[in-house]
């Protein structure tokens, strides 16, 4: 039961981290859209920055999508762990009933139920293993994108310095992109840590 509670807690923590990452990504997407509006006014001076904002916007949308997907996966893992805990607990109760019934009883009837509970528990365990694999893959992919975003955020500062009278506005936006990307990375890192715990618990 404790193992399932740990899985439930860890998967909910992952969902919470991804929720925060998605909220930040939404704000990042809005920042990128504002930046695009400024680059339109800035014209040729900000062509480099404009390309970056397009990328940042697409990247933010991807993070929002990934976060939603990972959140769904984490919720499913949480539900499965609770259901698995229930099956294990039920199985324990029927095993105790078997002992209490003793030989002079109809306890053979329980064999089929115990077998079915055992199969259900094994199936849940296998399903959970596969779901954890998918979760790990998606989380790694998001982290890879975030690393790229970190580099782009730094580049955006260089591009902002070439934007003439719009330099200050674009600097603010570049800083915003850098800070928000860093925060998203922190949440994804935390989610990864919880995933490692979850995998350890389930192994």
């Amino acid at each position: 039961m404790n193992q399932s509670i740990n899985i439930d807690v860890a998967s909910n923590c992952i969902a919470a981290e991804l929720y925060h990452a998605a909220t930040l990504a939404k704000s990042l997407s809005l920042t990128a859209k504002n930046a695009q509006a400024i680059t339109l006014r800035a014209g040729d001076n900000s062509l480099g920055f404009k390309a970056i904002t397009v990328f940042i916007n697409e990247f933010a949308e991807t993070i929002i999508h990934q976060a939603s997907k990972i959140n769904d996966q984490a919720v499913s893992i949480s539900r499965l762990s609770i259901s698995h805990a229930h099956t294990m607990s039920t199985s324990k109760q029927f095993n105790r009933a078997w002992d209490f019934a003793g030989k002079e009883s109809h306890r053979e009837d329980l064999k089929e139920i115990l077998l079915s509970l055992h199969e259900r528990a094994n199936q849940a365990q296998e399903k959970m293993r596969l779901m954890l694999q998918h979760l790990e893959f998606d989380l790694e992919e998001s982290q890879m994108q975030m690393r790229a975003a970190g580099i782009i955020a730094t580049t955006s500062k260089t591009e902002a310095s070439r934007a003439g009278e719009y330099q200050e506005s674009l600097f603010t936006i570049a800083n915003n992109i850098e800070t928000t990307s860093s925060k998203i990375r922190t949440h994804l890192k935390a989610a990864s840590k919880f995933l490692s715990e979850l995998k350890d618990t389930n192994s």
Partner: peptide, 19 residues
């Protein structure tokens, strides 16, 4: 209650089959 279940089922099985 659920705490009682194993003993109760075990006791009932001494009288009749579960089905």
């Amino acid at each position: 209650g659920s705490e009682l279940f194993p003993v109760m089922l075990g006791s009932v099985l001494k009288f009749l089959a579960v089905n």
